[in-house]
Amino acid sequence: MPMLTQPKLNFLYSEPATLESRVGNTPLIRLSRLAADLAPAVQVFAKAEWFNPSGSVKDRPAANILRAAFENGDLDSSGERRLLDSTSGNMGIAYATFGATRGIGITLAVPANASPERLSILRALGAEIVLTDPLEGSDGAILEARRLAHERPDRYYYANQYSNPANWQAHYLSTGPEIIEQTDGQVTHFVAGLGTSGTLTGTGRRLKEYNPAIQLVAVQPDAPFHGLEGLKHMDTAIKPAIYDETLADVNLSVNTEEAQRMTLRLAREEGLFVGISAGAAAVAALDVARTLDEGVVVAIFPDAGFKYLSERFWSNK
């Protein structure tokens, strides 16, 4: 067998084979058995965001926030400043992944009740973790990140995913155009859970520019106290600065147990082993789809189920 020579190896890739270049372009997967009761001309698709390199939709904003921070000079390759933010998990994993590739230290304020799987992944990726009071939830982590940023502006670049425009712009530049292309422009409804609101805001703005008739459906927990990791009850939480309350055409609230039941059904009837916020998005997407005679509904499924295995509901029948 002929051996490849060194010069030839240099030309194996026509594009830079970096991890960041693999962010986005996630597949659309059509729901079939769960959509069996819908009108024949209604299709529901999951945008399978766990196909991103670090396993969640958060790769898009994290990579874009890092890119923007390098462009603005907030961070540089000397690695002297660290990126700081608050997160309940996925955003931290994405920051830590791309921070590692760029040689940037990552410091995260994380509520102590974030799932143990997530904390282990963050530690494996070398992130510095500051645990915050579990009774204060993600808002407690936000306040701690603010405090650290204020105390040590020399040490930290405070990325603040809740107010950083590079968050929603990532979706405007990638998620939105991908959905238009993948549905051949036929998308009629877009469904996304609200956490920072970046996904709905960025994707939604792009879709509305393409076709103002596309309906944007925002999904929230039905109560301030809930088990839908990554989602926020906007009326009672610290409102993200990037949240545009006027953008969504429809606001739906989903109950934790309902989302958990749907998460089990997605695994068992569609082979989609996804996280609980994907279950919530599916509840909302199917609720909307049931009211239609025809349409193409696309829902964001933020991540896979691995990081939630310590939750008790998986053992439900």
């Binding site: 808002d139 407690g140 927990p221 809930h226 989602l231 926020k232 939480a237 609980i276």
Partner: peptide
């Protein structure tokens, strides 16, 4: 202490 198994977040 009553703690949700995830971090929802809520402040008045």
């Amino acid at each position: 202490r009553i703690v949700p198994s995830v971090a929802g977040g809520a402040m008045g």
